[in-house]
């Protein structure tokens, strides 16, 4: 228990960010109309592509071949998530364009 509390306190800023972000996430999308469920899901999907930053860091620090190859795949996968996610969302939303 004490160890856990210490761990949380050591990372207090991050714990703070996590808790506030949870509420922010709930607040930000709670009034979405049904028609936008799918595009919103797709947009959120692109945003969690932020995981690519982790793969860049891993890749950039790597020295062993195995790590480099794995990291390389991670970068490709992360980019797919980001680029594909945003482009697909944009295409979906093109359907909502107003004509007048």
């Amino acid at each position: 228990m004490e160890q856990l509390l210490n761990f949380l306190y050591e990372n207090r800023e991050m714990v703070f960010i996590i808790i506030l972000s949870v509420f922010l996430g709930i607040e930000v999308i709670s009034h979405v109309p049904t028609v936008l469920h799918t595009p919103l899901m797709s947009g959120a999907n692109a945003i969690h592509g932020v995981v690519i930053i982790g793969s860049i860091i891993v890749m950039g620090e790597a020295h062993e071949m195995l790590t480099i190859v794995l990291g390389f795949f991670a970068v490709i996968l992360g980019t797919l998530n980001v680029v594909g996610g945003f482009v697909v969302t944009n295409r979906m939303l093109e359907m909502f364009k107003k004509k007048k």
Binding site: I17, G25, I29, S30, M41, I47, I53, G54
Partner: peptide, 17 residues
């Protein structure tokens, strides 16, 4: 920080969605 905010935002917004 950005991985943390981006990830958690999607995590909570996605759950609500």
């Amino acid at each position: 920080q950005i991985m943390l905010t981006g990830g958690i935002l999607v995590g909570s917004a996605g759950t609500i969605l």
